[in-house]
Design a protein around this nucleic acid. Structure first.
Lengths: 211, 211
DNA sequence: GTTATGGTGTAACAAAGGTTACACTATTGA
DNA sequence: TCAATAGTGTAACCTTTGTTACACCATAAC
């Protein structure tokens, strides 16, 4: 585990902290599509991502969803910290976007290291900082942009996260992520295809040029 | 200054920290309506609210606005911390909702105390926690609710913050806060009046019963 | 007073997005 | 092979929200 920690967190944490993490952390492998956390779950630990990506979503009472952002390697879930600190239930849903490897840290250790290691403290603050900014950008997107622009942003982000020009999703899945309806998404995608920006296929979309 | 700090932060901070704050903090009085921070401003210090309330807003490139939340006494602006840490410019706008009194802390002290005082650390984490949750709730509101419900929530929050059943705003001002248009807001307010929930007057609205 | 300004009410219309319905087709699986 | 299922395309329609235009009235400024 030491090696993976060094590779992904070596530039952030001092050696002693890496060693401590290796002692108390537990390795976890999660297959793509697996729901790692649902609304209302209690939190057992804080995850440190080693590889893969996790999709973080908001959900309302009717079960309507909205994609918030993706967690990538070298990142953690400040929402989880959020819950640990507040001793409240999860307010978000997390699903593995790809096959993902991560290390789970028990909650108590998190608090202990906050006192002990400046690098851990900075990491936690930085995580909060990043999440707050990401949620603000989603808010901008939902509040100020129209669906066609939101869709383009969504496709770009998917390309970036999965590092592939082919998006393996149905129109329905995209509609859920953007909290829209399948018909609307199909309509807008067709428009993008007619503009030559993408190519539509059953179960996948090829991105040509989204600028 | 010591007394104000004790009254508002005595239950959060230990005596030594209160004393340190009193030494380096500067008192500030801000009249209602004053713009305390604009998008792109550099941050000079972190505010601790003593009395009053501050309205925190998001703004896009076209200058369209959206109300995020209010800061009240005993709270600080984690967005400001956000900027200090990232050494980036402000991404939000802050306007005094009421006549407000606050104490400004220089940025360097903030970092110093994070190492030195657990209570300060907890306060900073708690602030992040609260802001993240508030932004999430705004996001819920914008993403999942229709304008009529958002308007009702807005009115309720105004009543709570200003501790008064009379809201001293024009329809245009409300429209800005909700990122809508004056005509739409007038329309929905009229509907609420017809339902007996509010009374409309020039320049103010009397809240009767919003559930 | 009179005029200018700003706040509100309302109608008519436009645009975006959501809904329903249905056809067509590729894939799965019995 | 053939039925069932899931993904997509498209039309028609509805609702919500935004826009434009204008009337009316209170208040402030002159």
């Amino acid at each position: 585990m030491i090696q993976e920690l060094k590779d992904n967190y070596g530039h952030l944490f001092e050696k002693e902290l890496i060693n401590e993490i290796a002692q108390v952390g537990t390795f976890k492998e999660v297959p793509a599509g697996f729901t790692m956390m649902a609304i209302g779950d209690y939190i057992r630990g804080v995850p440190l991502l080693i590889s893969g990506a996790i999709k973080v979503m908001r959900e309302d009472k009717e079960g309507d969803e909205l994609l918030l952002y993706y967690l990538e390697s070298g990142e953690t879930c400040s929402m989880t910290m959020n819950c640990c600190m507040g001793h409240t239930k999860s307010e978000i849903k997390a699903v593995a976007e790809q096959d993902t490897i991560l290390i789970m840290i028990p909650v108590q250790k998190m608090e202990e290291w906050t006192t002990k290691y400046k690098s851990w403290r900075d990491f936690v603050f930085q995580s909060y900082h990043n999440r707050l900014n990401e949620v603000l950008h989603i808010l901008d997107s939902v509040a100020f942009e129209k669906m066609d622009q939101r869709l383009v942003n969504y496709l770009k982000e998917k390309v970036r996260i999965n590092n592939s020009n082919t998006i393996q999703n149905t129109h329905q899945e995209i509609a859920y992520d953007l909290h829209s309806s399948r018909v609307v998404i199909s309509r807008l995608l067709k428009k993008l295809e007619q503009m030559g920006a993408i190519e539509l296929h059953r179960n996948h979309i090829k991105i040509i040029d989204l600028e």
